[in-house]
Simulated assay, not measured.
Amino acid sequence: MSIQNDFKKFFIQTANELLMKRENRKFEIDENNQYALDFFTSYFSDNNKLEKLGGKPHKGIFLYGNYGTGKSLFFETLEKVYELYKNPKYRVKTIHTIELVDMARREFANSHQLAPNDKSIIENYSRGSILFEDLDAESKINHFGNIKDIMSELIQLRYFNSRRAKCITHITSNLTLEEVKARYGERVSDRCYEMFNFINLGGDSRRK
């Protein structure tokens, strides 16, 4: 099988296997996720088809929608495909925003324990191909009276890094772009226009 030619078929098969094992249900395709599925599979396999769908291959994916619509499943399925084929094109490092902020909070609390050559949490996640899962689930950090918004800082840092080297950012979230603006500010939302292909997963929760 040519994985590039049959990527969508294999992606659906893998998503089915994941859901049957975890939730005993099939991966359903309907009007709420058909475009997102076509876009996502084209993004990782066929740039020509992606551009016909209005996508930009140099941008990351901002996958948004209600709880339970399958946002995380898309990237979990991609991870399984990577495990089987080891194609670096499918390799996306994943970190949940809550976990990331918790790590940063511990780092700030123990900053005196960092060795001189140690990289900070923000530095570790400022480059490469990374998925930040569930944007807006994280909290801000109060560090000696200074409020730090880790995801706001990271999005802006990765925006500047992407202009100099390969730095692809992916995000899943319940937020629309307008809600991103309200939560993180106009500067961040403005960067997002240049950083992301915005894809909506519509409908209600598919979890049963």
Rank of each mutant, 00 (worst) to 15 (best):
N200A: 10
K208A: 11
N174M: 07
H143D: 07
L63I: 06
I168H: 02
L78P: 11
G68S: 13
E99C: 03
L78N: 04
L177N: 03
T169E: 03
H112Q: 10
Q13I: 09
S162M: 08
S120Q: 02
S111Y: 09
K119I: 01
T97Y: 10
C167D: 14
M20T: 10
S72D: 14
S2Q: 12
R206V: 06
Y64K: 05
Y64Q: 11
I171V: 15
V92L: 13
N47D: 15
T176C: 04
V180Q: 01
F11E: 05
T41S: 04
T94A: 13
I130F: 03
F44D: 06
N197E: 04
I141H: 00
D38P: 01
S72E: 10
R91M: 13
E194L: 06
N197H: 12
S42R: 01
I61R: 11
F39P: 05
E99M: 07
F44S: 10
L73H: 09
G54L: 11
N110M: 10
A104R: 14
I155T: 03
D149G: 08
N174C: 02
T77W: 10
R163Q: 15
E194A: 12
Q113V: 12
V81T: 12
T94W: 04
E186W: 00
I98C: 10
D6Y: 13
T41M: 08
G202N: 12
F160I: 07
L78E: 09
L154Y: 06
F10K: 13
R22W: 00
I29R: 00
K71R: 08
K166Y: 09
D6N: 15
E153T: 09
S42H: 08
A104D: 04
T14D: 01
E107A: 14
A165I: 12
N146W: 04
K93Q: 14
L175V: 10
E186K: 09
N32M: 00
L18F: 02
